[in-house]
Computed example of a mutant assay.
Amino acid sequence: MVPGITTSTRKDGSKRKHRYYVCGAFHNKGSKVCRANSTKAYTAEDAVIERIIALLDNDIVFTRTIDAINNQSVQSNIQRKNELEQLEEQLLEINSLEEKYMEAFEQNLFPISILQERLQKVSNQKLT
């Protein structure tokens, strides 16, 4: 849901603003994708506030919700940390391979054309 606002002019010349929420797909892509499904902003905001108050009043549900959010956050951090460790290991392997190719170049063990191909492959691996 995305917010929307319309302004209408009354008979006396004053302006009236009407706030509402509308389906995001309708707002961005039009009526071919979705119906407007608009709702008055005050009604929606009051309903959200009532739900928040109900959540805060019920200690058990509130505690469970916070614990679930914290657990999800911890799991996400652990997953990201593992991914980072794997990427660091791959980077170390690629750097050591690059160093070996440079040493081979310095000792003239490979022709330059083969060395260039292999170094290009290593640099492409670094980018991905």
Rank of each mutant, 00 (worst) to 15 (best):
Q90G: 11
L97A: 15
S31P: 00
S123P: 06
Y21P: 05
E89V: 07
G24M: 05
F26T: 11
A54C: 03
A104L: 14
R10C: 06
C34V: 03
L109W: 02
Q125Y: 14
L115W: 02
S14R: 13
P3M: 08
Y101M: 14
C23G: 08
E89H: 09
L115H: 05
I60T: 08
N28G: 05
Q125D: 07
A41Y: 06
K11T: 05
S76N: 11
L127Y: 09
I53Y: 01
H27K: 15
K15D: 04
Q116H: 07
K100V: 14
A47S: 14
V48R: 01
S14T: 14
T43Y: 01
A44T: 15
Q75K: 13
V74T: 12
G13C: 06
V48S: 02
Y20E: 09
F105Q: 06
L56S: 02
F26S: 11
I114R: 13
R51K: 12
Y21M: 12
A104W: 01
C34A: 15
S76H: 05
G30C: 10
S96K: 11
E99L: 06
I94T: 12
L92T: 03
K17V: 06
L84T: 06
E89D: 11
K32F: 03
R16N: 09
N58V: 09
E98K: 10
K17E: 10
V74A: 12
N77S: 14
V74M: 06
F26C: 14
D57L: 13
N70T: 05
Y20W: 11
F62V: 04
A104D: 03
E99H: 04
S31V: 14
D46K: 13
I114A: 14
C23N: 15
R10P: 02
E117Y: 14
I52P: 01
Q72M: 09
H27Q: 14
Y101N: 08
E117R: 08
I94A: 13
L87A: 15
N28Y: 04
A54V: 10
Q72S: 12
I49K: 06
D57G: 02
P3I: 06
N124R: 10
L55H: 00
I78A: 15
L55V: 04
D59M: 02
N124L: 13
V33M: 09
N124E: 14
Y101A: 12
D46H: 08
D67W: 00
G13F: 02
I114W: 05
T9S: 05
N70C: 04
N82V: 09
E45I: 15
Q120R: 11
N28H: 08
R35D: 15
A47W: 00
V122C: 11
D57R: 07
M102G: 00
E88S: 15
R64G: 02
A68H: 00
R10G: 02
N70E: 08
H18R: 10
S73R: 08
L97I: 07
V22Q: 15
K32L: 10
A44N: 08
K11I: 03
V22C: 13
G4L: 10
L92W: 04
Q86I: 11
S76A: 13
A68P: 01
T7D: 04
E99K: 11
Q72L: 09
R64H: 01
V48F: 05
Q90P: 01
Q90D: 14
L56I: 04
E50K: 13
R118C: 13
L115F: 03
G30P: 01
I94W: 03
M1C: 10
R35C: 12
N77K: 06
T65D: 03
N70S: 03
I78W: 00
T128S: 12
G13L: 07
T7K: 11
